[in-house]
Each structure stands twice: as C-alpha cells, then as structure tokens.
Design a protein around this nucleic acid. Structure first.
Lengths: 99, 99
DNA sequence: ACATTATTTCTATAGAACTAGAAATAACGA
DNA sequence: TCGTTATTTCTAGTTCTATAGAAATAATGT
C-alpha cells in the first residue's frame, strides 16, 4: 500500500458514521450485512448511508455483492490488514514501543 | 482508546499533508523535528503547516516542546500504538487473516 | 404489466476544512 | 531596547463534505 491509498483509507475511517458502518461489517464476519440491515441498525437515512458505503467501497474497504433484491456489504479484511501493515511499518517506530 | 478518539486520529492522518508531516516525524525518531525544518522539507506555507500540526497535537498524535526559539515536534508513538491496537482489535477479524 | 421492496442517484443546502497572506506573538542576542 | 528568527493567530476565500428528501433504478413475485 502506498501513502495515497493509506490516506484515502484513513480518511474513509476517520468519520464516525463510516467507522460505525465498517465496525458493524467487521463484527458481522465474512457474510457481511445487507444495506437495509445497516440502515435499521444505525438509524440513518438510506441516501446518507448509501453515500458513505460508496465511499468505503471506493477506497477498497468494503465490497458488495447482490443477492437478489438485497445488496450484501462485506468488510474487506485484506485491505484493512494492508492498512494496519502500512501504519505499523511506515508510521510507527521500534523506539517508541510500537509493534 | 474509544471509537471517538480513533475516528479523530484517523481523520487526522487521513489527509495527505498531515500524514506526510506525521511520517516525517516518525522517521526522525524521538528527537523529532522543529516546525521550520518540517516547513523546508515539505515546502508548505507556515500558516498552513501550523494549522495541520495543531490538528495532530489536538488529537494526541504529536507533542511539542520548545527549545529556545525553536519548537520541536515529536510523534507520539504511544498514541499511534493505541490507534493501531484499536484497529486491530475492533476493526479486524481472525477470519480475514488480520493480525 | 403491476405492485412491492431494496437501494441508488439527483439535487440542494449548510457547515466544515484547506489554504495562505498579513499581522501578531515569542525568544533571544547585541 | 531593538532587530532578527521562529511560529502562531487572524482573516478571508475557495473548495470539499455531510446530510437528507425526492425521484429513479433494480429485482422479484403475482
């Protein structure tokens, strides 16, 4: 991962609503959750939710696959792993006790 | 670290300029760098730089200590460690291969 | 074809963020 | 005290971002 992608992912997660969405997806495991399920859980208007999900998808943190009428959203664990790897490697230091 | 602090840190680092500042500080080790040094390295106007540094300081990612006329900025490794810990614990999953 | 459900795109608006010049403050040496 | 260097605060302009209602699209069953 390069610095631009990292900043993009960080910006995506650096918003309370989007971080909540992402956490909900991570917790729900590899099966993910339909958009409507996120909507009822997080209690936000569909258009707003859709906007934020698109942001996460654009930065590779979430992927979607349609199952009939329902759109399943899944956290992209590999992408998140890459991000954490970048932060650990490029933004931490042996000196300071980072992993 | 709680979700609010995490989102704040992520938002801080989710900006190309601030991420560059932070990386420069991390790379320079526990001695850090003076503001002026960052300015000449990153080639950005003082007021803009000051604005971004204040943002990082406000979110606990950078601390400052004056040495005479020079203000030294130092990356807060512990804070960064906490952030990475939060992401690993709350936003990753065993299933997906995250650490 | 139509009704229903699920989700997105369009559109507008209010507020926040980024940028940077100019003026102000801080620290120090002469 | 004055001048110089280092940095911040003030101010303003422009550009992004978040929000959400309304209309449009997609998918399915009847």
């Amino acid at each position: 991962m390069n610095i631009g992608d990292a900043a993009g992912c960080l910006e995506s997660l650096g918003n309370d609503t989007r971080l909540s969405i992402f956490r909900a997806l991570v917790r729900s495991g590899p099966d993910g959750l339909p958009v409507g399920r996120l909507q009822s859980r997080l209690k936000i208007p569909g258009s707003t939710l859709s906007h934020h999900i698109a942001h996460l998808v654009n930065h590779g943190l979430v992927s979607q696959n349609r199952e009939g009428r329902v759109l399943k959203c899944v956290a992209n664990y590999r992408r998140m792993n890459d991000l954490v790897g970048y932060l650990t490697k490029e933004c931490c230091s042996d000196v300071g006790g980072c992993p």
